[in-house]
Every structure is written in C-alpha cells, then in structure tokens.
Design a protein around this nucleic acid. Structure first.
Lengths: 227, 227
DNA sequence: CGCTAAACGGAGAGGACGCTCCATTTGAGC
DNA sequence: GCTCAAATGGAGCGTCCTCTCCGTTTAGCG
C-alpha cells in the first residue's frame, strides 16, 4: 500500500539511489535540458557534464547512452504532448481541438530545439516514448475523425499529414527562440488554413500523402557518416 | 577577342590547369555532388576524395575549404533557381508564375539533400551564390508584386514567407528521395492553397511574419559545438 | 565515530575528422 | 626522349568526441 511500491518504475528506477546521487541526477537532467534546447541534441556529453558540474563518469554511470539521457530529458514534454491531445479530446468543438493540438505542439517544438529530434526519433531504448507517442497518435486520429465528421477538416487530410507538419515545423531554424516561435506560428497558421474544409475547391485534389507516419522517421537528425 | 579572355573568371578560373588536374577536378565535383545529395553537406572530406578516387591532398589543393567545394557543386542548382524565376517572370499568368517557382524550387530542394543547406547558408566565400541569390530574390519579389496585383496572391504575403517555405520544406527527411518528393509536393500544395487570395476570409489576419529573409539564415545547418 | 559500499571526477585510451607536408609520378614543351 | 614544374597520394599531426578505468571521497548505518 506504499505510495512507491508500483512494480513498473516509470520513467526510471531511482529508488535505490543515495541522496547525493539523486541530487546530481537532477542537476544532469537540468543541464541536459538546457543544452539540448539551445545547442540541440548532439551536444558533447562532456559539455552536459560540465554544465551540470559533475564529471563525465557520473553522467555515464547514470545515463549509459546518449539516448537514455534524451529519453529522460524529454519525458516531460512527451507527457505534455499527451495532455495536449487529451485536453483537445475534451473540447466540445472538434475543429478547435484539432487546431489547438497542432498549434501547441508546434509551439513546443519551436521553443525547444532538441525536442523535434527527440519527438520524431524512435530510439531503441525509448520504449517509454513509444507508448506515449502511440497514445498521442491514437488521440489525434480520433480528433481528426471528429473534425472531419463536423465538416470542418478536409476529408483528404491524412494522419501522415501530422508528420508532415512536424517535419516542416522542425525545419525552422532561427537565431533566437522568439524568432523561431514567430516563424512557427505563421507557418502553422498557413497550414491550418489549408486543412480547413472548403466546399468551394473540393474538386482540386491534393497530391498523395507521403507514405510515412511518425514511426518511419528513424534517422533524424540526419547522420553524416562516410559511405 | 578570344572566347576565354573574359576578365571575370566565373565560377572559377580553371584555365591554367593541366588536363589531368582538370579531369580530377571533374571527378571530385561529381563525387561531391553525389555525396552531398545522399549524405548531406558535412560528409567527411576524405569520403568525397575516396569516391572521386583521388587523395585528400588533391581535393584540398583544388578546394581549400569545404565551402569552396560546396559553392562550386551547387553553382548549377543556383543557376537553375535563377532560370526558374526568369521563366516565371516570362509567364503571362502571374499566379502560375508564382506557384511554379515555389513548386520547382521545393522539388529541387527535396530531391537533393544538401541543396537546402547550401541554398540557405551564406558562406563567406560564396559571393557567386550571393549574387545569384539576390537576383532570384529580386525576381521573386516582382512575381509576388504581380500576383498580388492580379488579386491572386493574398496581400499579406511577405518576402520572408519564401524563407519560411524553404525552411519548412527543408525539414522534410525521408528514407528515399521519392518519399521526400512526395511529401514535399503535398506540403507545397497545402501552402500554396493558403497563399492564394480568398476574399471570403480576408478578415482573419495572419500571425506576423518572421523577421528574417534568406540572408538571416547563417548557422544552417545547426552547429553543435559545446558551450 | 568508524566502517563500507556507493558515488565521484579526471585522466587517458580509442577513434573520427580536418588539414598539411613531402617524396614520387606525370603531363607538356623543347 | 629529356626536363621540370605541376600534380598527386598517403602518411601523419592536431583536435575533438565518446566511453572506461581507477584512485579518492562521502553518505548511510550500526
């Protein structure tokens, strides 16, 4: 009956840790969050360690792979995504729900440089993300269905278009986070305008949807190894 | 009166080269084109040299910096961009001209992975690109003006939106070039649909345009150095 | 307070890449 | 063919990054 006796230790089992270790773990996570947001995923591990004020060994002991660190760092954001979708599902107006999801998620993406990569990438050990992503995907599919049923979303909108939006939004790079956000907002406004159903030009067919969903995006960000 | 006596040796002066050197230069350029397209800008120089079947020294002698190589490799594409704009300017239908430019350039971008980065980046020694980019930009501004005058393009479309399109399109990453093209086409169709003037919802204002143009995009692709 | 396992940090091995130096090869004019 | 400047290729050095090993420090417990 203890609060912490749950058998599934999500997101990670930190119960057996000494208090100093726990403290350092927090500092690492905070430092990594900062570093990823400003420099992007792929900052040297040593830089994260330095920002956290710990040695590299401590970093590696706690997070053996870069991916495990990323997974943990973005756990919050992933959960935030899920709640965004959940909130939208509770909205009585289907179109507003649909619109809000895209707007909010894209804003998150624009604000945090590393988030795009983390969100779009399926890491081998990011099973936690996997589960949440699937849940978000399901919820979004439902939102899509409702918005179409309400006649507000064009009928040929596909699930893959969400990926398209996220990739497009992820392409935005700017000097400052504010500039990125401004640009993102405008892009999203343009796209949402097109997503709306419009009986006037229903006869102009869209090019086919790309053949991928979120899970087809392995290899992001682009590798650059030799051939 | 000689054919080759032009004082401005654009894009590069290769006149004094021995035939074998010239031959190797071609092989390097071809190899680099391939490598950039598939692996992206930033492939190891050694990989380019290996593909070209030359030593690294040969590569460096011909192209002292990575940027000079990129400049040369993408000279063709840059010229192609300019012609696309020129063709569009010759089109009697302003909207079709506008639309075609965006479609064609985005298609080029989607087909060649390195092109985005090369196009968006202002390299110190890429003065050649600079000139062509300015020309393309001017032409596009004129196209925009005409399309607006014809009432086909929404009045609040800004030059910066072109950058937005290119960034968004550049965000597309896919396994194969075909998938990327498919995705790009769909994205572009969505965006163009929004760019069209529509008196029905002229009262819905767009978020402000991002405060940048093509030349504000230094730092693409994202650096990842430590802080 | 003292013991011990847990935690720590930094040095350094290992590897990728950028770029240069230099001994050797080769094209081109005589 | 002979000569020599031009061209070549790969060895090698410096740098940056990942990840591990190991001697030292410290929290937690009796």
């Amino acid at each position: 009956m203890s609060i912490r006796s749950s058998r599934i230790p999500r997101p990670a089992d930190t119960s057996g840790l000494r208090v100093d270790a726990l403290h350092n773990r927090d500092r690492i996570l905070r430092a990594a969050r900062e570093a990823f947001a400003t420099l992007g995923i792929g900052v040297p591990m040593a830089a994260v360690a330095r920002r956290a004020g710990v040695g590299v060994a401590t970093l590696y002991r706690r997070f053996p792979t870069r991916e495990s660190l990323i997974t943990e760092v973005f756990a919050d954001q992933m959960e935030a995504c899920v709640s965004v979708v959940d909130d939208a599902l509770a909205d009585p107006d289907p179109w507003r729900g649909f619109r809000t999801v895209i707007e909010k998620v894209c804003a998150m993406q624009a604000a945090d440089r590393g988030f795009t990569a983390a969100f779009l990438t399926a890491f081998p050990d990011a099973v936690d993300h996997e589960r949440e992503r699937v849940r978000a995907e399901r919820g979004f599919a439902e939102l899509t269905r409702r918005a179409k049923a309400a006649g507000r979303l064009r009928a040929d909108f596909e699930q893959a278009d969400l990926t398209l939006v996220l990739m497009a939004n992820g392409g935005i790079v700017a000097e400052s986070a504010e500039d990125a956000l401004t640009a993102s907002r405008r892009l999203v406004a343009y796209l949402l305008r097109s997503f709306q159903a419009d009986p006037l030009d229903g006869d102009v067919p869209l090019p086919p949807a790309p053949p991928f969903g979120l899970r087809h995006m392995r290899g992001f960000p682009p590798a650059r190894s030799a051939g």
